[in-house]
Design a protein around this nucleic acid. Structure first.
Lengths: 333, 333
DNA sequence: TACTCGCACTAGAGCGCGCTAGTAGAGCGC
DNA sequence: GCGCTCTACTAGCGCGCTCTAGTGCGAGTA
């Protein structure tokens, strides 16, 4: 910075002013300073800036690599953060790197707020986090924790999907749940409620699973094994999310079970992959961009107005009918 | 920190020593300092620490969200970095956020080294970057730029794939290239060379594309439209990467073209999705974990020994035969 | 006694910025 | 000419830490 100041023939303070885009420098000087900085390859040091200013204007985002819906969210987070003048730092939870570790890394880099995409941690931990920093949880509801919360109305999404299937004539509809995955509990509950509402209480079946392709594959194998033992296949499956639905399709296709002729499959999320499958996945769309924008705005607003209480945003999901759902076998279409 | 020092009756320097776990303080004092710090709720400020120490021990990783192979790489980067005592910061290039911006963010947060996953930037920019910070490029070769380089031997991978197809009896093999995508140029060149080597020079056809599902879908539509005009379909397609291959399968399936009976498809990368497709994608495996480890090690070693010259690691890819490749139509299997 | 050595600890100079309080000079009205 | 304001710019402190170069002291050695 001193080098830039010398070479541009101004004081360090003026360079600072230019880089913060603050009034107090002529247009001419501004350009000269920026040009010199570019030549030297100078870049403001955020650590020093942070130290001097006390604020980092940085949002930390914790996500799970491979969760396609979360990468969709990230795409929405960047532009909104930039619009509001905030920087974004990403930290991934992966195999062998827990959420807590990912979060510590963010905090260690002085993020002012945390945006957690589908956190798996317990409410106590999240509440403690919420006391320490502004925290937003996306896709996971955490009652009584001091965190903002952005999710979509799982019950509405599930209801739409179930109504769609029942209208097509399905009765034997099973649900692969998402285990501890975000939104799973609500989806499971809503599935049960929908079955009861349609008088299908006796057909309720929840197969434990996860939000992964592997889980879908395993469920597929399970169902096929049952069929081979003489049990009937369900006529429709409501998967925990799109990845699970995609996994499910693999063993089915291999075994010659045709979708949707023999079996209908509905996913959840409408992640960017779901319309890329051979016949397009019928799924429940959550608007990732909108969710991302809400999350960023919640964080920033609470940062700039600390007495604000955490809020909750519930967005409406929407069923997207594509190629994997149709009338059950035995019914004319 | 001063408060802790006062209350514990020592100097700030000693508190610093205690918190850095360095020799130079008695066990007794150590405990007293830690106890007092805990009472006050003192935590070292990493921004100040960073500033004072001059080293951040942080690696910055630039990646493209949605490139599944890159997320596979990220999974490999974390554990290796942790093993070597380095922190990792992620920055994504997305629509509307260029690579340069993503890199600036990393540099601004004082990353000591940059690991760029499949960078798209030109050699001049990368060289400039390499002068300024230790830089590693993964999957993209940048001749004469001051960067380390980790990639796999594209020519070997393509040759294996092509030999496989030719052995099966294919002659009309087209290649969807990856445009400016990492490795595309080499793959394209190797495809041409392999065709010539097999005496198929007259059959060479490279369809321009990208490393996206969308590109595969468009190519599929193009080929189908040609077929409808009476032109023959190719019997095999070597896609630019797995995503492109997956996209290609969609319009084919819709149009009733059966894979691999009517058409063989080979991908590239073996990203974690390729074995999750209905019939498993035949593809060229690049070992993401190994590549990630090399990248981290290159960065760290050059950081700790600055007179080291940038190096290059070329890993051997390996063809993985799954369900999308078979003999061409008209040949007995 | 005089010395060296090692240990526990301290003083104080930065690290690269932001920010407050200030100055110099131009322009203006009276 | 004077005082005033406004713009463009500067000096220098301080953010919370690390690190170098010390000081003081007791034990061991000649």
């Amino acid at each position: 910075m001193a080098d830039v100041a010398d070479k541009a023939g101004v004081s360090r303070a003026l360079v600072s002013i230019v880089f913060r885009n603050q009034p107090g420098a002529s247009q001419e000087t501004r350009e000269r300073v920026l040009r010199v900085a570019d030549e030297i390859g100078y870049r403001p040091d955020s650590a020093a800036r942070l130290l001097a200013r006390g604020r980092s204007r940085t949002l930390g985002v914790m996500f799970t690599v491979h969760q396609t819906f979360q990468t969709d969210l990230i795409e929405g987070i960047y532009p909104e953060a930039e619009r509001l003048g905030y920087d974004v730092l990403l930290s991934a939870a992966v195999q062998g790197r827990s959420e807590a570790k990912a979060v510590e890394a963010l905090l260690g880099h002085r993020c002012e707020a945390l945006i957690l995409l589908g956190p798996d941690a317990d409410a106590g931990y999240l509440d403690a986090l919420g006391q320490r920093a502004v925290t937003v949880s996306v896709s996971r509801r955490v009652p009584r924790a001091r965190v903002d919360f952005v999710h979509s109305a799982e019950s509405k999404g599930v209801r739409q999907a179930m109504d769609h299937l029942v209208e097509l004539g399905h009765r034997r509809i099973v649900h692969i749940d998402g285990g501890r995955g975000p939104g799973s509990a609500e989806r499971r509950r809503s599935y049960r409620a929908a079955m009861r509402r349609h008088g299908l209480e006796s057909e309720i079946r929840v197969i434990p699973g996860e939000h992964t392709e592997q889980s879908g594959i395993e469920t597929g194998r399970l169902l096929l094994a049952e069929r081979d033992r003489g049990l009937p296949l369900p006529t429709a499956v409501l998967a925990g999310n799109d990845r699970c639905a995609m996994g499910l399709l693999m063993p089915l296709a291999r075994a010659g079970v045709e979708v949707p002729r023999d079996l209908s499959v509905v996913g959840y999320d409408d992640s960017h992959l779901s319309h890329l499958m051979p016949i397009g996945l019928t799924t429940v769309r959550q608007d990732a961009v909108l969710m991302a924008e809400h999350a960023v705005r919640f964080a920033v607003e609470r940062l700039e107005n600390p007495q604000l209480e955490p809020r909750e945003a519930v967005l409406d999901p929407k069923l997207v009918v594509r190629g994997t759902s149709g009338p059950p076998p035995g019914e004319a279409s």
